[in-house]
């Protein structure tokens, strides 16, 4: 059976693309490599800047997708994208008139920044770990204690050529501010420090939230990258940085160190780029045809993109792109008839 449009990846961009296609009367087939759809958002607790529960957004999207009658296939990983459709890793070929690539990003592996001891020191966590802890409603140190001093480090796996990640992952800054506020709400007497390089508050309400974090929640911001984390005798974490605004080294011991990990280009990008119509940017994110009028288009007329497959984006931007991509697919299909 020939499906009209295949959507690769069942994260929010893929879900919204499939939904928008179905709403236009185009039959989509959503392929997800893991056993369930929802992507990275399934592990997230609350969304900036409104503290909307991620489950609310995901729940609404899932319900509407279900109602739309769009076909969803999980445990289906795409190996290859070509003119006729896609080929799965199990060898199955699926034909389609058009393909929308919504394969998203990978989380940066914090172990690569060896100097922070992630995976070695139990009180070093990633921002994703912290979201899981929020979800379990159990934010405690590895020893089960309430943290009284927490540091969040921005730009872990972003703007760092030592780990092959020259780009800015954009959303970590605001995530750091959001998580700092959530921690402060949980532990009002705790001292919370954000170590940042630049604070990039690009979205509506973000800057306001940053100011709120500083002024209302008393969260401390230190401009400087932590150079090294090590464990103290009582299993706390000693960190070193430069307080660059005063030009002096700074050191302190914290109960928890949270690494705000960046977005890494999806592992599948390279594989998809074996198709010459799918170009990679130097960052290894997928390069759309251009950044303005064709930002969801590939070099082929029937392959489209949506979401973080092309660059780091927030939830709203990814959803908007999904709608745009569905719109472009519809235009393409109607022009062919």
């Amino acid at each position: 059976m020939s499906h009209k449009v295949i959507v690769v990846g069942g994260g929010i961009a893929g879900m919204q693309t499939a939904l928008s296609l179905a709403e236009r009367g185009i039959q989509p087939l959503l392929l997800e490599k893991s056993e369930r759809i929802g992507g990275k958002l399934t592990g997230w607790h609350q969304l900036f800047p409104s503290f909307t529960p991620a489950s609310e957004v995901l729940g609404d999207l899932s319900a509407r997708l279900k109602d739309s009658g769009a076909e969803v296939r999980t445990n289906s990983e795409v190996r290859k994208i070509d003119k006729q459709g896609v080929e799965l890793t199990d060898g199955t070929s699926l034909e389609a008139d058009a393909v929308v690539v919504c394969s998203g990003f990978d989380l940066f592996n914090a172990r690569l920044k060896e100097e922070y001891g992630y995976g070695i020191y139990p009180n070093v966590y990633t921002s994703a770990d912290l979201e899981a802890m929020f979800n379990e409603n159990r934010v405690l140190t590895a020893e089960g204690k309430k943290p009284q001093r927490i540091a969040l480090l921005h730009c872990v796996g972003s703007r760092d050529e030592k780990v092959g990640q020259r780009h800015c992952s954009r959303v970590c800054c605001i995530t750091g501010v959001k998580q700092a506020i959530e921690l402060k709400k949980l532990y009002p007497t705790a001292d919370i420090y954000n170590f940042y390089m630049d604070i990039r508050m690009f979205g509506p309400g973000y800057e306001e939230m940053y100011r709120q974090a500083q002024q209302e929640y008393g969260i401390h911001f230190v401009r400087g990258r932590i150079s090294e984390a090590s464990e103290t005798i009582d299993h706390r974490v000693q960190i070193k940085a430069e307080d660059t605004l005063v030009g002096r080294p700074l050191k302190m011991t914290v109960d928890m160190l949270i690494l705000l990990i960046g977005m890494k280009p999806g592992e599948s990008n390279r594989r998809f780029a074996e198709n010459s119509a799918i170009k990679l940017a130097p960052s290894n994110f997928v390069q759309p045809h251009d950044s303005f009028l064709h930002n969801v288009c590939s070099e082929a007329p029937n392959i489209f993109y949506a979401g973080t497959v092309t660059a780091p984006k927030n939830v709203g931007e990814s959803l908007n792109e999904a709608i745009t991509a569905a719109d472009r697919v519809a235009q393409y299909l109607s022009a062919r008839q």
Partner: peptide, 26 residues
Amino acid sequence: PRAINLDKNDRLVADRILEQMPELEA
């Protein structure tokens, strides 16, 4: 050592200042 040692520094006065003028943290 030249480092600002936040384990040793007494932030009492700093906190008092910020309590009276929280916008300074902004």
